[in-house]
Design a protein around this nucleic acid. Structure first.
Lengths: 247, 247
DNA sequence: GGGATTATGCTCACATTTGAGGAATTCTTC
DNA sequence: GAAGAATTCCTCAAATGTGAGCATAATCCC
């Protein structure tokens, strides 16, 4: 049997079942596992499959997320980068939704070893790309506009949780009112998230500071860290720096 | 024997078998392998065959190359379209993961009014685009490779659920063994999903029929509908049609 | 016929593929 | 987190395939 035939067979099997085991293929094709491994390595080099321990996976299972035109993307990436400094191996982290969080998820180094809980399927999928991250997605009703899970079930699950750090984006943050939001569902979720975390980091572009919305989520004193796209020493952040750690 | 005759014979053999071995041809045509190799080189230069180590392949033998290209996408879309006929307004539906399900989610008409439960964040996000669909995403550990939530928590949530229809893809389906799979986690989840549904539809491209994997998920009698890319009257489906409704 | 062209087979040095043994790595499980 | 199992990587050796050069034979053309 020609090498190419064998590889075509492998591709076919992967397309069919989304994955293959080297050991299975070795039996099916009647060649040594080494040979299969060499085939898999070749196919992986050509980008036709994804090699994993023990076999290979279909490439189409990886989901390429289209880079949309996200508002203030650079600023958000900068925030995400700074927020990384709050995370270290071994931590259990609760993370919200939103584009900033997706950026953060993307920037997480592959060797970081953490457990993440999230209410955002998008963030979850992004985190799942990392080898050493465990991702738990909370279940509930998926809210159409925000793409996060909401509802009493989520609140319920959160009440059983206890995490080291909660990372939240926000629509508005001010000295007087603290975190505010305009969506009742979201407010409920955020409150529950904050409640089960030892510390809270708010990630927000500077523009959103010193603005208020209809509903209060939490007062400023609940916030441990504020991560913005400004220098930590920026005068615009001085008032906040009196109450919490600005990064 | 003339060179042209020989080459014509080679082409013929390749069209017949999609491949040839230099050693075989050398015997069949009673010439040295060198001659065969020279022939193959010529034919390859003219683009009539693809030369590989040890022989040659048919030109039509090209790998399913370009990435992001979901295997058998058209077939899957067709399946998804047919499966739509099982869904009507007011139903509560439990839906699995996989590319076929994503296709189905995409094809759901915007005015359909249903409640969906799913274990796949990708399917959930796709469904969330529809105005009149309520989407509940079950919570649990996100499995890296399959992009579905797994674990005891999911099983637990499923045990509280009662839905009209369960839509599942499968890796293998056969008359004798029913639904089989190779991943223990996935088997557990599928079992739980089947258990809480009044009826079960299996969506699968015909290729996956009559194959078996290591672990049994459910016997064939649990399956109410089989949706494939073949005509419902196709003889290959006849055996299945005796046990369930083929669509 | 004789020279040129082409096809074929042979030898030989070299390249590719494969399997096997053993070390190194990764995963599992307690 | 340490032992043990499974998997992978590395290297070597054997088998097999390849291309180049050369000799020989067949064919063609004048």
């Amino acid at each position: 049997m020609l090498k190419e035939e064998r590889q075509a067979y492998i591709i076919h099997q992967i397309n069919l079942h989304n994955k293959v085991l080297s050991s299975d293929l070795s039996v099916q094709l009647n060649v040594s596992e080494d040979t299969i491994r060499r085939d898999l390595n070749e196919l992986a080099e050509n980008g036709q499959v994804i090699k994993v321990y023990g076999g290979a996976l279909s490439k189409s299972f990886q989901f390429p997320f289209q880079e949309g035109n996200v508002y203030a993307k650079e600023g958000k990436k900068e925030i995400a980068l700074k927020a990384l400094s709050l995370i270290s191996s071994g931590m259990t982290i609760l993370i919200g939704g939103g584009t900033t969080m997706i950026e953060l998820a993307r920037l997480i180094p592959n060797d970081l070893q953490c457990t993440f809980f999230t209410i955002s399927p998008l963030v979850a999928l992004e985190l799942a790309e990392k080898d050493n991250i465990e991702v738990f997605l909370l279940g509930g009703k998926l809210s159409r506009n925000t793409n996060i899970v909401t509802g009493s079930q989520v609140i319920n699950e959160l009440s059983d949780l206890r995490v080291d750090l909660c990372l939240l984006g926000t629509n508005s943050l001010s000295i007087e009112e603290g975190i505010t939001d305009s969506d009742w569902e979201v407010v409920q979720i955020k409150r529950a998230m904050i409640k089960c975390s030892k510390s809270l980091a708010i990630m927000s572009i500077a523009e959103k500071l010193n603005s208020n919305q209809k509903m209060r989520v939490a007062p400023l004193k609940e916030v441990s860290y504020l991560v913005t796209d400004l220098e930590a020493t920026d005068p615009r952040l001085k008032d906040f720096a009196n109450h919490l750690k600005v990064i």
